[in-house]
């Protein structure tokens, strides 16, 4: 052992550091090595290893768990970009397995069936960083308090409908603007209302942003959807079913990467949006029963 102050991957700074390096990129859901290669080839900044994409989880029902080790390891072996994987909300042993496997990011995800209805995973002790979904500022800060190094919108996974991701992005950013307008002594009561740690709320008040990167996820199906999220303040995007449930996954994957780099240039978005074939079929959120809405999971 060296005597110098060496910090390991458990340090929040190193976890947030990786999240910073993913900014401006597209993280793509993949279920096998062929899809992972296609994603890397298209310019994905990371892949999310899954047993089934959210649209199939929704269609097939049943309990959705962490992907099998064979799926995750198969994907880790065939790409050089970061590999993420999902654990069930509160299932800290699935998270331990993913950490031991050396995945680059763990998504404690509402897309899988929650394992605990009261507690999320205590994310501080892990070497792998965590990303968690949120619908508003209070939920974002609770997850960050538990150790999340990246926040994403919940959106409505597997729906091909961007409306929930837009709602969550606007809500979080609107909540932040409200907090910025408060006086310092008003933050204590606001923290209580939001159910958020007051130290984190004080950070938001001073800095005007979350202490960790804020990405968009859930329902992104087109390059325009990705750019919409970026223009609303997301710093990168996750695309789940939107690629491999579309007519031409390779072209769509490249187009989503293109649109996420050039999110604020209409001419480039036009180029990215041409000749992609059919997008994934979408679902009107109102037609989903309350129990079918994945974004309602977690708290």
């Amino acid at each position: 052992m060296k005597s110098e102050p060496r910090e390991s991957a458990q340090s929040l700074e190193l976890k947030v550091g990786l999240a910073e390096m993913l900014k401006g990129g597209v993280i793509m859901d993949v279920t096998n090595p062929e899809q992972a290669k296609l994603a890397e080839e298209a310019g994905a900044v990371a892949v999310m290893a899954l047993e089934r994409v959210p649209a199939d989880i929704r269609r097939e029902g049943g309990v959705a768990r962490m992907a099998s080790l064979a799926v995750i390891e198969g994907i880790q072996k065939c790409v050089s970009i970061p590999v993420m994987a999902k654990a069930r909300i509160g299932h800290f042993v699935e998270a331990q397995l993913l950490d031991a496997l050396g995945v680059d990011f763990i998504d404690e995800s509402e897309v899988l069936t929650p394992a605990d209805e009261a507690h999320h995973v205590d994310k501080h002790g892990f070497r792998a960083p965590f990303v968690c979904g949120c619908r508003n500022l209070g939920e974002a800060l609770r997850r960050i308090g538990e150790g999340a190094a990246m926040i994403r919108t919940k959106g409505e996974a597997g729906s091909g409908n961007i409306v929930e991701a837009v709602r969550h992005l606007r809500q979080v950013n609107g909540d932040i603007r409200v907090v910025q307008a408060l006086r310092k002594e008003e933050l204590f009561a606001r923290a209580k209302e939001l159910g958020a740690p007051v130290e984190l709320l004080q950070y938001v008040h001073t800095e005007g942003r979350l202490p960790v990167p804020n990405f968009a996820a859930g329902g992104i199906a087109t390059p325009a959807d990705a750019a919409l999220c970026m223009q609303l303040g997301a710093e990168a995007v996750f695309v789940g079913s939107g690629i491999f449930k579309s007519e031409d996954p390779a072209a769509r994957a490249r187009a989503l990467v293109h649109a996420t780099t050039h999110w604020n240039e209409a001419e480039e978005l036009l180029l990215a949006s041409r000749g992609l074939g059919e997008a994934m079929p979408g679902i009107e959120i109102e037609t989903l029963a309350e129990s079918e809405r994945l974004s309602r999971r977690g708290w």
């Binding site: 110098e4 060496r6 340090s11 990786l18 050396g102 680059d104 070497r127 792998a128």
Partner: peptide
């Protein structure tokens, strides 16, 4: 040599 130290769980900081 890319990712020579390993994956994210092997990331570190040192002087």
């Amino acid at each position: 040599r890319r990712n020579a130290y390993g994956t994210q769980v092997d990331s570190f900081a040192a002087p």
